[in-house]
Structure formats: structure tokens, C-alpha cells
């Protein structure tokens, strides 16, 4: 920039080394300040698209599990997505534990997927890990797939009674969201 100035008006351009350096410094500093200012503006412009306060506040859900009978599941909503809460029967628990040692695509034991002391409550997202469809098997009378858990009709992923992927294109087990028992019968998800 200083160069163009100097060539534009050769007659009056500062010639001493000091002067040129000072001019360069000023121009660079001024342009840099403009650049920093421009970058600073990007931050709020980007951050405004992140979830707003009301969305974040609604990102935890409480579910009362006391009314779920063994073998039944309920669908709740967590972050605007389906959440499956299922009380396993003794047979389903046994089947899941038997398969803990089987060759699994995404190895996890039933114990790792449930909370201590509540081994019969399986909480998973109702979102197939393949492309995000809602698997069947939570509601009464729905197809449970070859492994007796959940079945995704979109591309035929079969999940077992612990919600682990056993067959089909899905890469991982149904996600177990972060949750905790706030009392014996109430879980808080998120």
C-alpha cells in the first residue's frame, strides 16, 4: 500500500527509511484492526444459529417409569426426538446377557447399557444409528426383529433386547442418552 502511494506521488513521498517504515506500520496496523473487527463480527453472526436459550432449557426430560410393565415400552420425547424406555422381562434380560459374549458389531454388555440397581430399565434413543429412522418394537404389536428387540423398517436393521445392533446396515447400537434416576421411579434424561 505504501508502495503505491510512493509511486503515485514521487515528488513528495517520504524518502527517509524511518518515514517509510512508520507509514508501512500505520497502514498495516489500520488494515489489521479492520480485519480483527471484521472477524469479531463473525462470532455473533455464527453463534446466533446455535440453539437458543429456550431450546437448551428444554433439552432435559423427566420420565416416570413406575407404570411400565415388564415387556412394555413407552415412547417419550427427548430433544424433539423419540426416546424408548423399556422394562425388560426376565427372559429378555437372560437373552441379552447370553449375547454379552457373542460376537457383536458394537460390543457392549447389558450392564453397561443400564443403570446399576435398575437392570431391567433400558433407556435408548428411538433413532436408528443408520440414517435416523424410528425403529419399530416399542409399541404393542410392532415387529421386534429377528433378535426380539427393535427393528428398523427403513433398511432392515435388527436390534436385540438390549438395543444392540445385530444385523443390517446400522453401524452402532441404539444410543443410550445420559440419564440418571432422580428417585426410584423417575429418570431425568439429559
Amino acid at each position: 500500500m505504501a508502495d503505491t502511494t510512493a509511486t503515485a506521488t514521487p515528488d513528495t513521498a517520504t524518502t527517509s527509511d524511518d518515514g517509510i517504515r512508520r507509514r508501512d506500520f500505520l497502514d498495516i496496523a489500520a488494515v489489521s484492526a479492520a480485519g480483527i473487527g471484521g472477524l469479531a463480527v463473525v462470532y455473533p453472526l455464527v453463534s446466533q444459529m446455535a440453539p437458543s436459550k429456550d431450546v437448551l432449557a428444554a433439552s432435559s426430560t423427566e420420565v416416570d417409569v413406575s407404570a411400565i410393565e415388564p415387556g412394555q415400552a413407552i415412547k417419550a420425547v427427548f430433544r424433539k426426538q423419540p426416546l424408548f424406555v423399556k422394562r425388560l422381562t426376565a427372559e429378555e434380560i437372560a437373552a441379552a446377557q447370553r449375547d454379552d459374549t457373542a460376537s457383536l458389531r458394537d460390543p457392549q454388555t447389558l450392564a453397561e447399557r443400564t443403570k446399576e440397581g435398575h437392570g431391567d430399565i433400558l433407556v435408548t434413543m428411538g433413532v436408528c444409528t443408520h440414517l435416523g429412522c424410528v425403529p419399530l418394537g416399542a409399541a404393542e404389536g410392532e415387529v421386534k426383529g429377528e433378535f426380539g428387540g427393535y427393528f428398523c423398517p427403513c433398511h432392515g436393521s435388527h436390534y436385540d433386547t438390549a438395543g444392540r445392533i445385530r444385523k443390517g446396515p446400522a453401524p452402532t447400537n441404539l444410543e443410550v442418552p445420559e440419564y440418571e434416576f432422580t428417585s426410584d421411579t423417575v429418570i431425568q434424561v439429559g
Binding site: 502511494t5 510512493a6 503515485a8 506521488t9 513528495t12 513521498a13 517520504t14 512508520r22 507509514r23 500505520l26 497502514d27 496496523a29 489500520a30 484492526a33 479492520a34 480483527i36 473487527g37 469479531a40
Partner: peptide, 21 residues
């Protein structure tokens, strides 16, 4: 404060550039 700093810089830079003409 940042804008004040940047504006002072812009003023000095402008003065330098115009000093030639």
C-alpha cells in the same frame, strides 16, 4: 474502545497517505 483505537489508527494512516499530496 476497540473502535476508538481503530479509528485513531485509521486517522493516522489517512494523514500519512494524504501528506504526500
Amino acid at each position: 474502545i476497540f473502535l476508538l483505537f481503530a479509528t485513531v489508527l485509521a486517522y493516522m494512516s489517512k494523514k500519512q497517505i494524504w501528506a504526500a499530496v
